[in-house]
Nucleic acid binder design. Structure first.
Length: 862
RNA sequence: GCCGGGAUGGCGAAACUGGCAGACGCAGCGGACUUAAAAUCCGCAGGUCCGAAAGGACUGUGGGGGUUCAAGUCCCCCUCCCGGCACCA
């Protein structure tokens, strides 16, 4: 037996440099970047460079980053790095949406004060972000839970109060029993709480602060037209949310005795042209007039009460649609101001007090809902619109009734007195004018958008800077007493009502007017207030006499690119648009819209489902970084799917990207040498190169072009990364040729460009390799941010092609572009083509043109 | 119901203005290197059929129709999936 037992336990280790070891590389550069806090800092607004403001939505410090964050920031960081490389002065800040309920829940569960819990989470998540290598300017970091931030929320609140844009209203509010707090309308999803999807929201009566967002309804709607850098989807959602409709308010006199609610019913209609067909009035069950009309008839009272509770229940449980339409006749009548006819007044379950006036004129012939209702109760159905254009003769059978209900608008009026024969459009104009002249109508615009309820009965939020004095009533806290500090010695519980109300030192205050005792407002602000203007704070985060410096904001705004999840498409983005318009009106900013371009990225899912603890399919970024490195994790999140689509996380895929980065690493380490050659170059004698080398050079230019174009337009970073992979594959295939001494200069250029191209996607690796390509005395701590992006030469990027035109009888029948690798190919193709065309011209028909592998091989003729 | 977005191999996807469908990657198979493995490098690969092989034929982008020399891409109709809105008068 041979002596084979003495196998060394540790096989000879390869050179450290041969193996791609992301941990070693990333920790090395991470340390260097940490040592220089100015590395990613934006230049002040006096900079000569053009500005570019790229922003990712600020996270809630929930504890740890998840993959959705990583994806979001990987997109933003790639863009920021590309824009730096394009020579822009880039503002790329990060902050924390640090107020909110989870901190209180954690306080209850873990007995940790919300502040401590929040700050600890911030510290952890910040270190994760740094480890992932994102190029944030941390000198501009903002945390909304700190007094230096939230005092400006309070300042804004006072300004809004001054301008009459916040007001107090005793109103029914949505109350989530689980959160023990009030929810905005926007936080109610299908009758349930947006956080507790199984918890139905109940109604409660409370005094609340409201911001008058409706003041800007029309502008918020109109300016959507300007936002052509936003996804159409988001604009549509906002349009629907604002919900403008143009119509007329019409007064109908009530016949007979009336009460305190008045002697007329005001309805809102968008179809005044159908008024001659209105055969009843329908009131919402909660309409104030109802009580007057039905008096104290006990059976009617009971029925209306049923309608109210039924309506609420249905609304809570999202059964509105399937509900059968029914109602109660009040046994009273109103007078149609156009016809003077008596119309029965009903109370109906399908009329909402929250929209329009809570009363409608019912036109059964021309409205689906009214039709169903009238059919059920035998109410008159009067046709006043025919599906025929004015001036057209009736088609045969046209005198027949249209299919009811007939709701189309491009038709003609009948049975409408003086307005007969008019088109809808004209009738609406004339009838509106008529109603206004006679004092019973008024052209009006109605919106679905409601004022924004900003009071929250919670602890962990911005205290509302208001006082209640016995003598002077509601009194704002004077500006020089800001901030109203949030006390820290608070025991947080989930009991209803605000925790602040249980702290006498906080509640008891002095009235600034009379000097007497006053009670402090104990509600805090909705956290959407924080996020409505935070991106302005980034422009001068340490300003301590104003929320931010207007000159800085003027320089940086609007945000050139905002990136985040589509779940904020309505709330956050509509509130911040409102806030910007308000700030403009008080002269603080000089732009109408905060966000020029918006990008909404897809979700990160796994096994077809959203990542969640309950499903047990959560992948932690820390684990990915530990196994494959930050570069591979980030690059994978860009490579696996286009950024606007959902991304199914597959670890094998991350491994693949890791492998690819290793290929780049090894190739550059093997062939790289310090060189001063730039990315622009002139290399003579190109004609004598082997085809492989020429093709490689072409590939380089094509790759630069593709990636540059992806950044400029389509943002398909998945194909950007794929393009670099292709380039690297070709590089390996041509390794033997291109490493010959006479191509050395080309190889230098290729390696440098390759490293620059991967830098937005794998910044750590790019820096490591750039060091390899740099002369020893050149310092490389710049994170490559300010190194110029490579140019491509369009001529050298072009495929060699021939164009081939097929004609029959002088008519161009086909025009084909055929790729040809060499000149000989072109000649051969041309000869073949000519032959085929000649055949085709002999009075024959072309049946088929066959192109295989870029070469025209046959034209089938008959 | 209305609005928006989708449907392409075993999987994630690509094909930008109609012009070689499936780039790139994952998983798979084969080879080289190695005592072996890992790592790495090279190659194969939509499906069905013919052929020993080289190669070839047919078929193929949710379904049906159409325009075109040419359709994943344009037009008409339909099915399914995802997201948003919804008695909005």
């Amino acid at each position: 037996m041979a002596e084979t037992t003495n196998i060394p336990v540790n096989p000879p280790q390869r050179q450290n440099e041969d193996r791609y070891d992301p941990q070693r590389i990333e920790e090395k550069w991470h340390a260097r970047w940490q040592a220089d806090p100015t590395l990613f800092a934006a230049e002040p607004h006096s900079s000569k460079r053009k500005k570019y403001y790229v922003l990712e939505m600020l996270p809630y410090p929930s504890g740890a980053l998840h993959m959705g964050h990583v994806r979001n920031y990987a997109i933003g960081d790639a863009l920021a790095r590309y824009m730096w490389a394009q020579g822009y002065n880039v503002l790329h800040p990060m902050g924390w949406d640090a107020f909110g309920l989870p901190a209180e829940n954690a306080a209850i569960k873990n007995k940790v004060p919300p502040r401590e819990w929040t700050l600890r989470n911030i510290a952890h998540m910040k270190s994760q972000m740094k480890r992932l290598g994102f190029s944030y300017d941390w000198s501009r970091e903002v945390a909304t839970c700190l007094p230096e931030y939230y005092r400006w929320n309070q300042w804004f609140f006072l300004k809004l109060y001054e301008k009459g844009l916040v007001y107090r209203k005793n109103s029914k509010v949505n109350w989530c029993p689980e959160c023990a707090t009030v929810l905005a309308n926007e936080q109610v999803v299908g009758g349930n709480c947006w956080r507790h999807e199984d918890t139905p929201v109940v109604q409660r009566e409370l005094e609340q602060w409201f911001a008058r967002t409706t003041q800007y309804s029309d502008e918020l709607l109109r300016d959507l037209e300007k936002l052509d850098g936003w996804p159409e989807k988001v604009r549509t959602m906002q349009r629907n949310w604002i919900g403008r409709s143009d119509g007329v308010l019409l007064d109908f006199k009530v016949d007979g005795p009336t009460g305190p609610a008045g002697d007329k019913v005001t309805v809102f209609t968008t179809r005044i042209d159908t008024i001659y067909g209105a055969t009843s009035i329908q009131l919402a069950p909660e309409h104030p007039l109802v009580a007057d009309l039905i008096g104290n008839d006990p059976s009617l009272l009971a029925k209306v009460g049923d309608l109210i509770s039924e309506q609420r229940k249905a609304r809570d449980q999202e059964e509105v649609e399937s509900m059968e339409k029914h109602g109660v006749f009040t046994e009273r009548y109103a007078i149609n101001p156009f016809t003077q006819e008596k119309m029965p007044i009903w109370v109906a379950n399908y009329i909402l007090m929250g929209y329009g006036t809570g009363a409608i004129m019912s036109v059964p012939a021309h409205d689906e809902r009214d039709y169903a209702f009238a059919q059920k109760y035998g109410i008159d159905i009067k046709i006043v619109i025919l599906p025929r254009r004015t001036g057209e003769p009736p088609a045969p059978g046209e005198e027949e009734k249209p299919m009811l209900p007939y709701t189309a608008k491009d038709s003609m009026l009948i049975n409408s007195g003086d307005f007969n024969e008019l088109s809808n459009e004209e009738a609406m104009k004339k009838m509106t004018a008529y109603s206004e002249q006679h004092g019973f109508g008024k052209a009006t615009v109605t919106y679905r958008l409601k004022d924004w309820g900003i009071s929250r009965q919670r602890y962990w939020g911005t205290p509302i800077p208001m006082l209640y004095c016995e003598k002077d009533g509601v009194v704002p806290v004077p500006e020089n007493q800001l901030p109203v500090l949030l006390p820290e010695n608070v025991e947080v519980t989930l009991q209803g009502g605000s925790p602040l109300g249980r702290i006498p030192e906080f509640v008891n205050a002095t009235c600034p007017i009379c000097g007497g005792a006053a009670r402090r407002e104990t509600d805090t602000m909705d956290t959407f207030v924080d996020s409505s203007w935070y991106f302005y704070r980034y422009t001068s985060p340490h300003s301590n006499d104003k929320p931010f410096d207007t000159a800085e904001a003027d320089y940086w705004f609007p945000i050139d690119q905002y990136i985040g999840g589509v779940e904020h498409a309505i709330l956050h983005l509509i509130y911040s648009r409102f806030w910007t318009k308000f700030m403009r009106d008080i002269g603080l900013v000089h732009n109408d819209e905060p966000v020029q371009r918006l990008f909404t990225q897809g979700m990160v899912i796994r096994n077809g489902a959203k990542m969640s603890k309950s499903k047990g399919n959560v992948v932690s970024p820390d684990e990915m970084v530990a196994r494959f490195g930050a570069d591979a994790t980030r690059a994978y999140s860009l490579f696996a799917a286009p950024p606007d689509r959902d991304l199914d996380w597959q670890e094998a895929g991350v491994e693949g990207v890791h492998r690819f980065l290793g290929r780049v690493y090894r190739f550059v380490m093997k062939h790289g040498r310090p060189s001063v050659e730039g990315y622009t170059y002139v290399i003579p004698g190109r004609e004598s190169w082997p085809a492989k080398v020429r093709a490689l050079e072409r590939k380089m230019h094509q790759t630069i072009r593709r990636i540059t174009e992806d950044f400029q337009g389509r943002w398909h970073f998945n194909t950007s990364v794929a393009a670099i992979m292709e380039f690297v594959n070709e590089l390996y295939a041509a390794e033997a040729d291109v490493s010959e001494p006479k191509h050395r200069q080309l190889l230098d250029v290729i390696l440098r460009n390759l490293v620059l191209l991967i830098s937005p996607f794998a910044p750590y690796l790019a820096n490591e390799l750039w060091e390899k390509l740099s002369l020893p005395d050149v310092a490389v701590p710049s994170a490559l941010l300010r190194h110029r992006w490579p140019d491509y030469n369009p001529e050298l990027a072009k495929e060699e092609e021939i164009e081939y035109v097929v004609q029959i009888n002088g008519k161009v029948k086909a025009r084909l572009t055929v790729a040809a690798e060499t000149t000989e190919d072109i000649v051969r193709e041309q000869a073949l083509a000519d032959q085929k065309v000649r055949a085709a011209l002999e009075g024959k028909q072309i049946v088929k043109v066959i192109v295989v592998s870029g070469k025209l091989v046959n034209i089938v003729v008959r």
